[in-house]
Design a protein around this nucleic acid. Sequence first.
DNA 1: TAGATTGTTAATCGATTAACAATC
DNA 2: TAGATTGTTAATCGATTAACAATC
Lengths: 226, 226
Amino acid sequence: MNGRLDNTENRHLKERKVLDRIKSIPLPAIRRYPSYLRRLKKYESEGVLWISATTLAEDLSLSSILVRKDLACTGLEGRPKYGFPIEPLICAIEKSLGWDNATDAILVGAGNLGTALMGYGGFTQYGLKIIAVFDSDPLKIGEMIHGVKILDIEKTADFIARTKIPMAVLTVPAAYAQLIAMKLSDAGIKGIWNFAPIKLKLSNDVIIQRVDLASSFAELSSRLKK
Amino acid sequence: MNGRLDNTENRHLKERKVLDRIKSIPLPAIRRYPSYLRRLKKYESEGVLWISATTLAEDLSLSSILVRKDLACTGLEGRPKYGFPIEPLICAIEKSLGWDNATDAILVGAGNLGTALMGYGGFTQYGLKIIAVFDSDPLKIGEMIHGVKILDIEKTADFIARTKIPMAVLTVPAAYAQLIAMKLSDAGIKGIWNFAPIKLKLSNDVIIQRVDLASSFAELSSRLKK
DNA sequence: TAGATTGTTAATCGATTAACAATC
DNA sequence: TAGATTGTTAATCGATTAACAATC
């Protein structure tokens, strides 16, 4: 009886701990997760079943303690001497990222950048599924782009409201980005992955993630200068 | 006499200090510089002559102390009560980034992504000047892309060796990225801005800056999950 | 068992924030 | 002068690294 009670309590404690951990995975770890995933999937495809944080760290030129800490954040426990079972580890990381259930998204702007992203292919691996593409060019509307139909950008708001789609990839020219983003926001979008070289100003309940090429180039320039 | 000696010493000390600062500008500051630049240029175009770190910080939703520290790293001194003179401040930041003299670069891979980047326009603002584009597609070779001629990718190594061009923007498909990067490296390229979703492995004297969309999307996913 | 690898607790490091005297 | 803003020195915070007992 006592044993059973202790067990229940233990399980609750453990669940609590896992929850806390999910909430508090440090951002740098989150950013490293995709590179772990890539590597782990490669091992998996080679038939490897177990991997140690030490090995993974070496392959990615990271410190082994860092990798161990990062993996611990997923809540999966490793086995001393063996490391981590690869398949469950992949699942645990994907779950931590929210990549276990594919996120449906729309892509707005079927120009060169939008087309390039559609062709990237890797997106399905990230649990990102583009279910519709929107553009304003009458020549493009109705065409297919990597298996997805291009729809009239005027119908975007309707589409979002109807499908409750949570995410938009924004690849329109900078000059239109703010206006279109506001329409997306009004229609109820939850997150915007913004590729336009503009800082969007929207209500705080829309999450905006910007791909800032200028920052990236600044880093390259300053490293090159040394 | 004494005064003059002191002056010389002072100047040396100051120069020394500036040098130290250049070497040691923290990376996060470097990454914030482009957003400062954008905003400062906007003020400048509006005819504003002086700006305080406080105002700049408010406009960018940053802490004012952070902005003050970042600006201090450029070596430019502000004036209590007035702030910083805009034009010299822009110059100081550009200099810190190495954006004062335009960096010549080539772009390798004239697909959708490469074309999109050529059309971005903002690049000249970053002191990046694409002077040649290379591709393997015979249909593209000889064509113009945003004012730059597309050359045969086979001629890349020659071109680099001849022009001593320091930087390459790599926008080829993932499958070719490593091979092409190795050729660039052998030809003497100093830095590669890598847009292929692949971690390049090159000798350490080539500086590689990767635009990692997976990391960016991971951040968005995890923020959206909360 | 011995040794490698884990998870955890403590130490270090670097960036951000706070406090405040100097100054225009 | 008074008040805003600077530059600098100290405190806080969070991430990385180090140390080490637990364990397969």
